[in-house]
Computed example of a mutant assay.
Amino acid sequence: MKLFLSLALFAAFLLFPAACANGVRDGLSLAAGQALPALFPFFLASGLLVRSGLAQALTRPAARPLAWLYRLPPSAAPAVILGLTGGYPVGTATTADLLRQGALSRDTAARVNAFCNCASPGFCIGLAGLGIFGSAQTGAMLYGIHILTALLTGLLVARPAQPTVEDTVPYTPDTMPRQSFSAIFCAAVQQAAATALTVTAFLTVFCVLLRLVQPVLSHVPYGTAFSGILELTSGLDVLRALPLPDSVKLTLASFLLGFGGLAVQFQARALADPVGLPMRGFAACKLLHGAMAAALTALLTRLSPTALPAFAPVDKALQQRHYSAFFLILLLMLFTIWSGKKAKNKI
C-alpha cells in the first residue's frame, strides 16, 4: 500500500505539473495570508509559557476542574487552554513541548492531545462566520459549539478509569534548568519557526493534492464539499459557493471545524513524532468531535430556526432535499475516513 501511494503521487506530480505548481502557490499564499499571521504568535507564546515556568500561574485555577473532569494533572493546563484558544495545531505543539520538558507523561500527553487541538475563535468568527454567513454572531456560535464538543470528546475518550501514578507527581519550575530570558526567548522563537515551517509545508502539500483531485470532485454532485476533508480552510471557502441552505452549510462547517481536515492531522503528527507523543486514535477523536459538533448544530437549527441569520427558514421541500444530500455527503466522508483508517492499519 505504501509503495502504491508513493508511486501514485510520483506519477501525479510528473503528469500534472501545472496543477502542482498552482497548488504550491495556493498553499504558500494560504500560509502567508491566513495561517501564520494567526498562529505564529501562539506558537511563540506556547514556547515562552512552557520554558519560563510562567505556565505554573495557569495551573492553580485550572487544577481542580482538570482533575475532577479529566483526571489530568495541573501541568496540563497550558496545553488545554492554548489548545482550545490558539488554533490548529497549537494544542499539539504545546503538548509536545510539555512532554519534551518532562511536565507530562506520554500517556497524559496523549490524553490531552486527543481533545485539546481546536480552531481558534478568530478563525471561526472571521473565516467561517463572516466569510461564509456574513455574521460574526454565527461564527461565535460555531466556536462555542466547537469548544463544547471538544470538552465533551475529552470526557468520552481522555478520562481514564483510575488516576495514573505518573500524573500524581507534581511538576514545578525547579525541575527545569534555570535559563536567562534571552536563552528562553531564542529557544521559543526557534521552536515557533520550526513549527511554522511544518504548518506551511503541510498546507502546501494538501493544496497540491486538492488541485489534483479537483477535476474528479467537480463531476460529483456536491463533490467539492470533500475539499474540507483534505484542507480545512479551502473546504470552508468552498462552502460559500455551494447551492445549499445556510442551515446545511452551517452544519457542514461545524463538522469540518471539529474534524480539522487531514492537513491539520498530519501537522499534529509531524509535531508529535519527534518527541514520542502517541497519536493512536487521534483521527478517531477528531472524527467524533466533528460528528458531535455537526449533530449539535443540526439540532440547534431545528429547535431555533430563526435565532440567527444562518438559521433563516427556507422552502421546506428544498430544505428536505438538501438535508438528504448533506447526510449522503457526510456518510461518504465517514466511509472514506473509515476505509483510510483500515488501510492504514494494514500497512
Rank of each mutant, 00 (worst) to 15 (best):
T175N: 00
T301Q: 06
L130S: 10
L332Y: 00
P309F: 10
P274R: 12
V220E: 05
I147Q: 11
D174F: 07
V275T: 06
A63N: 00
L48M: 07
L84K: 04
L256V: 08
A63Y: 01
L252N: 09
T195A: 01
F335A: 09
L296E: 09
V216W: 10
G223M: 12
L28W: 13
L242A: 14
S218Q: 13
A325C: 10
V216S: 09
T198C: 15
C20L: 07
S227I: 02
T204V: 06
A31F: 13
A310S: 14
D237K: 15
L287H: 10
C285E: 01
P177V: 02
A193Y: 05
V275G: 07
R240H: 12
V80L: 14
F259E: 05
P37Y: 11
Y70K: 07
T306W: 03
A241D: 03
A192W: 05
S182L: 13
V264E: 09
A188R: 02
V157M: 00
S46D: 08
F115H: 04
P61M: 01
A158P: 06
N113H: 02
L14W: 13
N22K: 13
L299Y: 12
G260R: 06
G122I: 14
A96M: 12
G129D: 11
I229A: 07
K2Y: 08
Y323H: 12
L303K: 03
P163L: 02
S227K: 09
A291D: 00
L250F: 14
G122L: 14
L296D: 08
D174I: 06
G47M: 08
A12M: 13
A192N: 13
L330Q: 07
L212D: 04
L230Q: 05
L142A: 11
A307R: 04
I184T: 07
F326R: 01
L217P: 11
A263I: 12
R321M: 06
L331R: 05
Q137G: 15
S339Y: 11
C285W: 06
A62T: 00
A128Y: 03
S339E: 12
L39I: 09
M141A: 15
G23F: 05
A194W: 06
M333I: 12
F282L: 15
A272W: 09
V264P: 11
D174T: 09
G27E: 02
R25H: 06
R111W: 13
A109H: 07
S6L: 15
D315L: 00
K316Y: 05
L30G: 10
S182T: 15
F335P: 04
T224I: 11
T164E: 15
Q34A: 14
T175V: 11
A57D: 04
A294F: 03
V216I: 06
S75V: 00
F226D: 08
L9P: 06
T164G: 15
F123D: 10
R211L: 03
Q267N: 11
L104Y: 07
A35W: 10
L250R: 04
A103Q: 05
F185M: 10
L256Q: 11
G144V: 05
L44V: 13
L257S: 04
V157P: 00
L250Q: 02
H146M: 03
F40Y: 14
A295V: 13
A128C: 09
A18H: 07
L210S: 12
F42S: 11
F16Q: 14
A21V: 12
S180Y: 04
P89A: 10
